[in-house]
Design a protein around this nucleic acid. Sequence first.
RNA 1: GGGUGCUUAGCUCAGCUGGUAGAGCGUCGCCUUUACACGGCGGAUGUCGCAGGUUCGAGUCCUGCAGCACCCA
Length: 968
Amino acid sequence: MDKTYSPGEIEPRLYQRWEAAGYFAPRPTAGARGYCIVIPPPNVTGTLHMGHAFQDTIMDALTRVHRMRGDVTLWQPGTDHAGIATQMVVERMLNAEGRRRTDLSRDEFVRRVWAWKEQSGDTIGRQMRRLGASVDWSRERFTMDEGLSRAVLEAFVRLHEQGLIYRGQRLVNWDPQLRTALSDLEVLSSEEEGSLWHLRYPLLDAGTGEAGGGAGAAGATGAGGADGAGGRAYVVVATTRPETMLGDAAVAVNPADQRYRHLIGARVRLPLAEREIPVIADDFVDPGFGSGCVKITPTHDFNDYAVAQRHGLPLINIFTADARLNEAAPPRLRGLDRFAARTRIVEELTSAGLIERIEPHKLMVPRGDRSGAVIEPYLTDQWYVRVATLAAAAIEAVRGGRVRFVPEHWSRTYFQWMENIQDWCISRQLWWGHRIPAWYDGKGGVYVARSEAEAHAQARARHGQDVPLTQDEDVLDTWFSSALWPFSTLGWPEGSAELTRFYPTDVLVTGFDIIFFWVARMIMFGLKFMGAVPFREVYVHGLILDAEGQKMSKSKGNVIDPIDIIDGIELPELIAKRTSGLMQPHLAAAIERATRKQYPQGIPAHGTDALRFTFASLASQSRELRFDLNRVDGNRKFCNKLWNAARFALRSLEGETAVAAAAPGELSVADRWIRSRLGSALAALDEALATYRFDFAASALYEFTWDELCAWYIEIVKPVFAAGAAADASPAALTAARAARATLATVLETLLRALHPLMPFITEEIWLRLAPLAGVSGPSIMLAPWPRAADFPRDAAAEAELGWVRSVVQGIWQIRSGMDIDPSRRVPLLLQHAGPLDRARLQRYGALLTHLAGLAQVHELPAGDAAPPAAASMVGELTLLVPMAGLIDPASELARLDRLLQKNTQDLARTRGRLANDAFVRNAPPEVVAQERARLTEFERTHAALERQIAQVRALAAQGSAGPEPRS
RNA sequence: GGGUGCUUAGCUCAGCUGGUAGAGCGUCGCCUUUACACGGCGGAUGUCGCAGGUUCGAGUCCUGCAGCACCCA
């Protein structure tokens, strides 16, 4: 093995090998169970971001674990056409060429988008390969490819046949910039500063129909402007959108509002439009808002639309598709954009004296999630999915436990939305997407069919002759095809072996941001079309943020391409990447400055394994996950540690063809100990994986590898190997070395398999060399069996023995470090108060202690002899003494002992207090009380020893630095 | 307005069914010790948001409050 770990060399090479060998495809195995994850298809809008890389790491880890367990495992890959988002990307590219979408024919434009899709899809494929994703590339799908388009067609037609899809004229969320309808979910509302305009609508005299008095003649008194008994002239309505007044159909008051009771049924003259509209009463009106009197604009406000439905008010649309005033407006205002119209209308009303006042007002402004344009409620014909029954079934599936959310609390979010769900508007006025399979005969006939021929047949049946048909121009919401993804990718509607084997899939790995968009809709459609839930579990992970807790976005300039963490990137290139193609180019300078500050040297290469391990250790149940490059750096060091441990192992096993498995009786206590610890790490790992706690999985592996295998076992085994290699090695030494080699080989080989799902590359690279030496064969670690914790049962005796060794060694190191003794300098050790067990252990592990703690001679202080001046450490009853002569500064030893005494005194007080509490002794479980008593004994013993030591060292310090020579 | 989270060491975060507060990073000291200085050894740092309650015992359970974040209206 190379001395240095070079992920950039290892990783691409191994991935190519795996892919070429076909290891990613499910291997049909008799009797094996299936395991399947479908990838949340990334949008073909560009490249994968950190969130994708995180998600892919989790899915790949699960996939690799199950593949190793022997399940027939499929990770189904693919991409999403992402209607609006992708169309916008391509439109922006056209704009950069100085052209517009409408300069092209629909066919030409769609061809452009397909070309872009190929490019983006390739990039995504490259990124996923670099991340090590073990998806079955032979099954890659795209939501608009032929098979999936058939699935969309079939689903639409069936839902329509069952009356679950309908076409209707309703108020929709209209994006005037993109000129398409949107679903509720695609509208994001945020609070913005606006104004509240108080408008005066002149009242008409009941009898004459004439407007009473002159505008303003009544001496307006705010809300009271309407109730001036004698000269009542107008009502005051408060609105945040004065321009929509041209479409007003009524003025409404709350029926319980005493101020306006007498006005109900009166009529007002709508200024500018010069129409008469009624004053109506409706509970919807909040008497506390504005004047308590509101204008009702049925076609441009969702609430007003509902009011209009209740009262049978006329629907007057005043806007064109791009939100300009239409022919319903007075001729002088026609063609004005809605914002220009606002200014103009306010001006005209002001000069007519019809504006009572204008006050600043915060309001919720709805915007399209893609375009950012203010959404206009707009009356159009659209297609809808009737969701009530679908949602009820989907709620029941989660309530009944057929779909389980992890963490569980996300099911509450799911229920809350599902229980208030509205019909889903699925038509979009775009060019890129699945064309709606509906044809019109121009005479009011609509034919929903699987093909144009079928539509013609339907038309013929209706009209008794062929009639010309035109297909609906609109496309379907992207999420319609996404909702079919778990079964359309597996072969629905035709059916397939994969569909039978893998549906329902096992787990959906996704972010909480698309629970409504996607998860809920997959459950609804899965139940509808497959009669079964699409997945048994939904693992909802957190959102990856940058180190400052900011969402990563292009406009913030804080995005990192995961590949740049893997391969590294120079500063100029990073800046170029972050500042090119910005929607707001003026941000470039600030982004460059911030980038230079944060990454003055660019980003060094970390390798895929370090990045993946970082993602895993980040995956707690928190909903926000801050990504910090320092952690990747730390995990890169972990890879390096593993690499070097493997180098040591391989070197030690050199010359062996295969290490014979050691007979259990030949294993040393250390051998037994590391096997026991491995077993417990593997058990923790399995538990963590079963509960999707990848952070626990990562830390279990990290701690075992670093703190146990490397820090202790490898150190312990060094002298064993050396002794076994000596020319005059005894048979016992040879046996011990052989057992240690076997143990090291087995433990490391097993550990590699356990690490493989999180760090696929480095483990494969090492395993291919190590496995033969460990007596394991196979073409790839990918196909090796998942390690079983049960093969490494807990060995309590060995753990107790090694626990003692570790305590003694740590005690000595504490003294050494506290006294700044050079690590290479060997120190003598004197033992005091050793019990029989201590003596036996000293006998057994003397050589080991000498090696690990850097000792010279070890002697026991004869009972009754006074201890020489020394630094001390306590392990149970045993006191370890490092004689001070020439080594130790009494003052710093005194300080060290004082710290220990302080901590001990606290422990002692707490434990004593607890045991003195009669209620505790009476009520606490006996084992807890016993544990507390044992602790007390321990603390008291330590306390006495510490006080003795302190007294001695203090005496020593008092008489100066020259202490008596140690007797040994 | 309704809902869901979060508040623990300088920073980022773990802490399972209540039983002596942990990790990584950072920081300080010592050390090129024969797998690894991408390393080793050791140290320091916490009224676990606040206030009550339950309990022998609360970071952990309950109630209230405050602050932050997100979702839905």
